[in-house]
Amino acid sequence: MRSPIKTVIGLVLTAVMLFPVYWMINVSFTRDQDMRADPPHLFPVDGTLEGYRAVLDQQLPYLGTSLLVGLGTVALTVVLAAPAGYALAKLRPVGGGALSFVLLIAQMIPGIIMAMGFYAIYLNLGVLNSIPGLILADSTIAVPFGVLIFTAFMSGIPDELTQAAVVDGAGRLRTFWSVVLPVSRNSIVTVSLFAFLWAWSDFIFASTLDGGGDHRPITLGIYQYIGNNNQQWNAIMATAVVASIPATILLIIAQRYVAAGVTAGAIKD
C-alpha cells in the first residue's frame, strides 16, 4: 500500500473512533425540538447555545469544586509520592521491595471497596461532603501510580550526581530538593497530569463521599442532569463538553507525557 492511501485509511479509522466525541459536541448545540428528529441532524443546523447557557447558570460552582479538588489532589500526590519514590530508588530502605509490591497491589483494589472504607471512616469522623475529604480519597487513586513512576525515573539518575552533592556537604533533604527534584521535572509533570485527570474524572468517590454536600464536583453535576426526568440533552452534553476540556488541553500540550504515563504502568524498559 502506498503512504497516501494509508493516511486516508488512518483518517477514516480515527473519524470512526472519535464519532462519539463529535456526536457529544453536535448534540450540545442541538435545539430541544430537534433532539428527537428522525433522522437525527448530523450537523447542528439552527444550533443553539441554550446548553452552554445552562452550564454557565448552573454548573459553574461544580466546575470550581472540581478544579479545587483536582489541584489539591495533584499537590498532595506529588508531596507524598516524590519523596517516597526517591527513598525507594536511592536510599534502599529495608522492606523497599515489599513496599513496591504493596503499591502495585494497591492499584488493583477496586474503587468501590475503597469508597465503602472511606465512607465508614468519614461517617465516624464527620468529614463526609467536605472538599479535603474528597481530595484525600482521590489521592489514593494516584499515589501508588506516582510512587512507581518516581521510583522508575529516579533510579535512572546517576549516583555520581547525588554523591557529588553529598561531597559538597548537602544533606539528604537538600540533595533531594536541589538536585533530584529539578532533574525529575518530566516525571513530576506526568504524575501531576494523571493525578489531576483522575481526580477531575472521579465519580465513585464523589457520589459516595460527597453526594449531599454544598460543594459537589462536575461529575455529579452531569449525573444529576441525567437523573432528572425532563432530560435536557443539550445541557447534559454541553456540560460533558466542558468537563472534557482538561483532558483535551492535556492531550494537546502534554501528549508525550500522556503516552509515557499510559505505558509506564505496563512496561519497564
Partner: peptide, 16 residues
Amino acid sequence: LFLVPWLLPLIVSAST
C-alpha cells in the same frame, strides 16, 4: 487522537 476516549471522564463517555 486515539487517546481521547481514554482520557475523557467516564461519566462523559457513558452519558454520550
